[in-house]
Simulated scan of single mutants.
Amino acid sequence: MKWDPAKYAEFGDYRNRPFFDLTARIHAEGPAHVVDLGCGPGNLTATLAERWPDGRVVGVDSSAEMLAQAAPLAAKIPALAFEQADIAAWMPAPVTDVVVSNAALQWVPGHQDLMRKWLEALRPGAWFAMQVPGNFNAPSHALMRELAASDRWASKLDGVLRGGETVGEPGDYLGILLDAGFAADAWETSYQQVLHGQDPVLAWVRGTALRPVMGALSEDDAKRFESEYAAALRDAYPQGVHGTVFPFRRIFAVGRKAVG
Score class of each variant (00 low, 15 high):
N135W: 00
A32G: 15
S190V: 08
V58M: 04
P92S: 09
W3R: 12
K7T: 07
S63W: 01
D185V: 06
G163Y: 05
P31E: 06
M66G: 06
S218P: 07
A230F: 13
G42K: 15
P53R: 04
H27L: 03
E169N: 11
V167M: 08
P133A: 11
A49Q: 10
W118H: 04
P212F: 05
L157A: 08
R206I: 08
S62L: 07
S227T: 14
L147A: 07
L44H: 02
H196I: 01
R56N: 06
A88Q: 14
R123V: 01
P170N: 10
P78Y: 14
V60C: 12
T47S: 15
H33E: 15
P72E: 12
L147C: 09
M130V: 15
H242I: 00
G168R: 01
L195T: 09
W187I: 12
A49N: 10
A180F: 07
N135C: 02
A75N: 09
M1F: 00
D36W: 08
E65M: 00
G207F: 01
A232E: 14
V241W: 02
H242N: 05
K223H: 03
R17V: 08
H242M: 01
T166K: 04
R152T: 12
G215P: 05
A231H: 09
A81V: 03
C39K: 10
V241L: 11
F11G: 08
P212Q: 09
A71H: 13
A180N: 13
L174N: 10
D61G: 10
H33A: 14
L233D: 13
G240W: 02
T47A: 11
Q198T: 12
A180T: 12
V167Y: 04
R206G: 06
D36L: 11
G181D: 08
A74T: 07
Q193E: 15
T166L: 08
W107D: 13
F20V: 07
L122Y: 02
D13S: 11
P212W: 09
G260Y: 14
I26Q: 06
V108C: 13
Y14G: 02
E65T: 04
A236N: 08
N43Y: 05
A222M: 03
H196G: 01
A93Q: 15
P212N: 11
I26W: 01
T23S: 09
Y14R: 00
W118I: 04
L114C: 01
L217S: 10
W52F: 10
A148L: 04
T244P: 11
Q112T: 14
